[in-house]
Amino acid sequence: MVNNISFCYFLKKHYTYSAFGLIISSEIEIPEFVISKEKSNVTICYGNVPKTLKKAEHEGFRYQISKNEFLIKYSTWATYFVCNGEKVIIQPEKNADERDIRAFILSTVIAIVLHQRGLLPLHTSGIVYKNKGVLFAGNSGIGKSTIAIALNKKYKYKFISDDITVISEQNAAPIIYSSFPSVKLWQDSLDMLKISNNKLPLIRKDVNKFRYNTNTDFYSGILNPYAIFVIENNVQNKVEIIEIKGVEKFNIVRNHIFRAKMIKELYSNEHFKLLTLFLNSAKCYKILRPKDVNTINELSSMINKIIKKV
């Protein structure tokens, strides 16, 4: 255990949140998270970050990564350092916009914390059915968040996660932790879901994607797995849902580990164990839907039927 009590603690205000099964103490206010009173196991604070990592295993565009350390510089707003799955240090640039700083805590940075802790963050949104998690995976822009919100609005499924859903293990069984109540939606998704963008905050200063809070429709806690749907584009002009079995399950879901391109194979042992454990208790379906066509009603009704069939 690392002693988390650093000097800034006493001088500066800090907020405690629960998200992804973690208790996070943060110097930065993160209104998207749920407030907690428990003892934290992750801290986020402002400070000086190292110039480079001592032993980087991979380097990408302005970032370095090893199994326990991660350093990334975003030119215009901040540099982030994450270590041991417990500590995030942020060194902001002058005039950095706090929304920009926060947007990347909520995605890349938190994902690296989860990876460093040996957990499996999947690039999925998620809802609840009978205390079990139903996840929607897919590449950016495919409609993961939209389908989760559509199922919530139309069929009253509670919501557990947007971009990242974390898989862990408890008593040799796979579990899913809920993430946090907020969803990121593009304008065309808001249109499809008939949600007004009036008063919705932007996720970043210059990115036209909105934060939508699911509030009371959010389920906070631990769930058993139920199913995972992987959404892909269909060249044909129709919606299809196919159940996937066998090793192909593993192959297609492995493509949706969060920030896989960034971490390469650093955590593949941990991921293998958790992913196979998860897939052994979750059904797996592939959704093929035509690109750029509004199929949300048809799709949510088909998925609802699959979820509810015994």
Binding site: K245, G246, V247, F250, N269, F272, K273, L277, L279
Partner: peptide, 21 residues
Amino acid sequence: LSSRMDNEIVMMHPESGKYFA
């Protein structure tokens, strides 16, 4: 590392990081 997936098996070689089915 190996795991059954329905009636097939997926494996990973921990050193090489290669996957087998």
